[in-house]
């Protein structure tokens, strides 16, 4: 199945794109998505971020479905 990744702030800079489709295994959960992302973009290890699945930030692990939207959100400090 495929999930739709959306990147923000520093995460988008590290990835070099603001969104992309990623082929993932069918029963993948949010934690495993993080691992995949950090494997693909090693610099993500240095950034704190949260994952929002279908526009909702979950405090627990979530199992993903085909075509889910995963937003990768770093904190912004500027003002």
């Amino acid at each position: 199945m495929k999930v739709n990744l959306k990147y923000f702030g520093m995460v988008a800079e590290v990835a070099g794109v603001t969104e992309e489709l990623m082929e993932v295994s069918n029963d993948i959960n949010s934690e495993a998505i993080s691992e995949l992302l950090e494997e693909k973009y090693s610099k993500l290890n240095e950034i704190d971020y949260r994952l929002a699945i279908n526009e909702c930030l979950n405090n627990e692990k979530v199992t993903l479905n085909d075509q889910d939207i995963v937003a990768v959100l770093p904190p912004f400090s500027g003002g």
């Binding site: 520093m10 240095e46 950034i47 704190d48 770093p74 904190p75 500027g78």
Partner: peptide
Amino acid sequence: HPKAASIPNC
């Protein structure tokens, strides 16, 4: 609290 050096300011 983010890792100090990870997120820059303006």
